[in-house]
Amino acid sequence: MQCYPAPSPKRWPQRLEPLIQAVRDAGVQDATIFHFPDAYEMTGEGREPWSTYVDLLVGEINKAAGDKDRPLLLFGHSRGAAPATCVAYRLGTRVKKVYIAACGAMKAHEPTGWELLSQRFKEGGDRDLLKWFSSIQPGNLLLRRTAFETSPREFEEQTTSSKMMADMLHVMRSQYRDAMYPDPDRDFGCMPVPIMALSPLHDESCQPEHCQDWELLTSAGFQLETVDAGHMDCLMPQQEEISIPADVESESPLLPQGGAMIWIARALAKVQALQHSKGKCELFEKICKDFQQFLH
Rank of each mutant, 00 (worst) to 15 (best):
M1Q: 06
P7T: 15
R15T: 02
R15S: 05
L19W: 00
D25K: 13
A26Y: 11
G27N: 07
V28I: 14
G44V: 04
G44M: 02
G46C: 06
R47M: 13
T52N: 13
G59L: 07
N62F: 12
D69N: 13
P71R: 07
L72P: 00
F75Y: 08
S78N: 02
A81L: 05
T85R: 01
V87I: 02
A88N: 02
Y89V: 06
Y89L: 04
K97W: 03
A101C: 03
C103S: 11
M106V: 05
K107L: 10
E110G: 00
G113P: 01
S118I: 09
Q119G: 15
R120I: 08
F121H: 12
G125P: 11
G125S: 05
R127Q: 11
D128R: 10
L129F: 12
L130Y: 09
K131S: 09
S134G: 06
L142C: 06
T150K: 09
R153I: 14
R173Y: 12
Y176C: 14
M180W: 06
M191A: 10
V193Y: 03
A197I: 00
A197P: 02
L198D: 01
L201K: 06
Q207N: 09
H210S: 03
D213V: 02
G230H: 02
P237W: 01
E240C: 09
G258W: 04
G259D: 15
I262K: 15
W263L: 13
L268A: 15
G279N: 05
F284M: 02
E285F: 00
I287L: 06
Q293Y: 04
Q293A: 10
F294V: 00
H296E: 14
